[in-house]
């Protein structure tokens, strides 16, 4: 049988993986913005930054990107977006239908894959299967990067995975880690900042507040998405995503303003 694929040996494939990864990794060891969390708000923030010519790196602890954006409420893969969230769907060319006045519905897999592609097309780089272990702080308390390690290192017993982490530097860090607020918690542990924890679910009011409160909470640290709720004690949201997209976009805009 005639072979259609080029003849390449195993060692060439391995070398390509190593050199390709090392090239990108070296380039992003020092970057403009590190976005921790690759859900809808994190991807939107990173895309906004990269589209405007700045370097944005997304750190995602899972193998997959998109967070909860693949699937809506109760394991049903329809995503709902309340007005004005559909403006982002238009921007990303994601098809959707109007359900009732002010409410729009789209397919989770289609919307999520489009968002990931839009971020990558804009120039965002992704480090998946990577978990943050700490933040980099400068003398004046400015957040100046994150300390990372491979996700599997944390998943295994310490006696067989005693692997030191490495640090990445950036001008700004965005916490897009959802309710866990994983970046903020390192500042809380040091007594640098006090956060409030999220409240009970209140769909009607929570979306506005998440966007409204998306901000720089500490020098060098911006919060977006559900991390905003945890930071400011806002109500939880239901299975609706407009605020995640708009909060991410706003976080990106704040970062760009800071970088000027």
């Amino acid at each position: 049988m005639e072979e259609k694929f080029s003849k390449v040996s195993e060692k060439e494939i391995t070398r390509s993986i190593i050199s390709g990864f090392a090239k990108d990794f070296e380039k992003f060891v020092d970057t403009d913005v590190i976005v921790v969390g690759g859900g809808p708000s994190g991807l939107m923030a990173a895309r906004e930054i990269a589209m405007n010519g700045k370097k944005a790196l997304v750190i995602e602890r899972n193998n997959y990107l998109g967070g909860g954006f693949w699937i809506g409420g109760y394991l049903m893969n329809k995503i709902t977006v309340r007005h004005p969230g559909e403006t982002i769907l238009d921007e990303l060319k994601i098809p959707y239908e109007k359900s009732v006045e002010g409410l729009f519905v789209t397919d989770g897999p289609h919307a999520c894959s489009k968002l990931i592609a839009a971020a990558c097309d804009a120039g965002v780089k992704i480090l998946n299967m990577t978990t943050i272990e700490d933040v980099v702080l400068r003398e004046n308390g400015q957040v100046a990067g994150v300390v990372i390690n491979w996700t599997p290192v944390q998943a295994l017993p310490r006696q067989i995975t005693c692997v030191d982490p490495v640090a990445l530097e950036s001008k700004i860090v965005i916490d897009a880690t959802g309710h866990d607020a994983n970046v903020l918690k390192y500042l809380v542990e040091r007594g640098i900042i006090k956060i409030k924890g999220f409240g009970a679910m209140w769909v009607e009011k929570s979306e506005d507040m998440v966007v409204e409160y998306t901000s720089e909470v500490h020098p060098g640290l911006i919060v977006t998405g559900m991390a905003v709720s945890t930071c400011f004690g806002l109500p939880r949201m239901g299975p609706t995503f407009g605020a995640m997209l708009l909060s991410g976009k706003k976080a990106g805009e704040i970062a760009l303003k800071k970088l000027k």
Binding site: K205, Y213, V217
Partner: peptide, 26 residues
């Protein structure tokens, strides 16, 4: 209550008064 408000919370209250944005959920 919120004994140690963060700066964005204070900024929000100022904007709320200036731009009549009461009733957002706080």
């Amino acid at each position: 209550l919120n004994t140690s408000p963060l700066q964005p919370e204070i900024d929000f209250e100022k904007t709320k008064i200036d731009e009549c944005k009461c009733g957002k959920g706080i």
